[in-house]
Amino acid sequence: MKKLTEREQHARVPYSHKEGAYPLGSWVAEQRRAYGAGQMTGLRAQRLEKLGMVWSLADERFQENLEAAKAYYDQHWTLCAPRAAVALSRPVGQWLSNLRRPGALDGHPEWETALKEVDEDWNPSWPANWQRHYAALRELVADEEGQAEVLPGVTVHGMDIGKWLARQRTPKVWQALTDGQRERLEQLGITPLAPAPEKPTRASTTFERGVAALAQYRARTGSVKVPRAHVELLEDGAEVRLGVWIMNQKGRRAKLTTDKLSALAALGLEWALEG
């Protein structure tokens, strides 16, 4: 064992390995079994540990992959790596994806602690893709004060962070986010956009402009008898074909609401009062 560790600089011995004729691999496996069963003295364990003995291969693999995960985090600011991600020649994306599966960390609370020390949000309750965009945004605005401004077209690692941010701020998407997602955005100074005012329907706008034009015409002429071809110019520059509009309202009187008929009657159109 000592000769191998001095030569290879590690104590990871394949089960089938032999040193000369001696089956060192199977001997090492037996030592691990005895250690795990509590059948090894402390002195023997210490002697093996001085040679670099690894009692748990799973722990060793975890630490090796964790180093790769740290290297990925240094470049991408998140451990929510795509499955195809590679760091230090290790498939870190697939490894992290496997660990996020339910029950994958059962019996290894220290593994989860180690991952959280690198990235508290390594296993968020929201999509990993969202977390990748958020992490890039967080890095972009790290030195900003107040409301962050990242415009569409600003890309990081191939992701359009500006476009993504604009979508998060829309009222519909903002409301669909979890409390945790909104909290993280708010910590960066991100707030939702104000809801857009409801646009009146075309018909409503046309009617209201007609009423305004008729009121203006009446105030100026003292009459509501408008020539068919007359066009009334409103203060905002809108042109209303007032004569045609009045004829149209009279023609569709049966379809007008009570409120609209009352508005027309108040201006002096007697036909609006008819039962």
Score class of each variant (00 low, 15 high):
residue 1 M to H: 08
residue 6 E to N: 13
residue 6 E to T: 11
residue 8 E to F: 07
residue 10 H to C: 12
residue 13 V to R: 11
residue 15 Y to K: 11
residue 17 H to L: 10
residue 17 H to S: 08
residue 19 E to N: 07
residue 19 E to T: 10
residue 21 A to Y: 03
residue 21 A to V: 09
residue 22 Y to V: 10
residue 23 P to Y: 10
residue 28 V to R: 02
residue 30 E to K: 05
residue 31 Q to D: 04
residue 33 R to G: 02
residue 37 A to T: 09
residue 38 G to L: 05
residue 38 G to V: 07
residue 43 L to Q: 15
residue 43 L to D: 15
residue 49 E to K: 07
residue 53 M to H: 13
residue 53 M to Q: 15
residue 55 W to D: 07
residue 56 S to H: 00
residue 58 A to S: 12
residue 59 D to H: 08
residue 59 D to F: 02
residue 62 F to C: 00
residue 63 Q to L: 12
residue 66 L to F: 02
residue 72 Y to V: 01
residue 74 D to M: 01
residue 76 H to T: 02
residue 78 T to A: 02
residue 83 R to M: 11
residue 83 R to F: 12
residue 84 A to R: 12
residue 84 A to Y: 11
residue 87 A to R: 01
residue 88 L to Q: 14
residue 91 P to H: 01
residue 96 L to V: 00
residue 96 L to G: 01
residue 98 N to L: 12
residue 103 G to D: 06
residue 104 A to G: 00
residue 107 G to P: 08
residue 112 E to T: 00
residue 114 A to T: 01
residue 115 L to Y: 09
residue 119 D to R: 01
residue 120 E to Q: 14
residue 122 W to R: 03
residue 123 N to I: 01
residue 129 N to E: 14
residue 132 R to D: 12
residue 139 E to G: 05
residue 143 D to W: 06
residue 147 Q to D: 14
residue 151 L to H: 03
residue 155 T to R: 10
residue 159 M to C: 08
residue 161 I to M: 05
residue 171 P to M: 01
residue 172 K to L: 06
residue 175 Q to S: 09
residue 176 A to N: 09
residue 180 G to F: 09
residue 182 R to E: 06
residue 182 R to G: 08
residue 186 E to S: 09
residue 190 I to K: 04
residue 195 P to T: 14
residue 196 A to S: 13
residue 199 K to W: 11
residue 201 T to D: 05
residue 202 R to C: 01
residue 202 R to Q: 14
residue 203 A to N: 03
residue 204 S to T: 15
residue 206 T to N: 10
residue 207 F to R: 06
residue 209 R to C: 07
residue 209 R to L: 12
residue 213 A to C: 07
residue 213 A to T: 08
residue 215 A to F: 08
residue 217 Y to G: 00
residue 218 R to H: 12
residue 221 T to D: 13
residue 226 V to A: 04
residue 232 E to G: 05
residue 232 E to P: 04
residue 233 L to F: 14
residue 233 L to H: 15
residue 234 L to D: 07
residue 237 G to D: 02
residue 249 Q to G: 00
residue 256 L to R: 05
residue 256 L to S: 03
residue 258 T to S: 12
residue 261 L to I: 02
residue 262 S to A: 14
residue 266 A to L: 04
residue 267 L to K: 02
residue 268 G to A: 08
residue 272 A to D: 06
residue 275 G to Y: 12
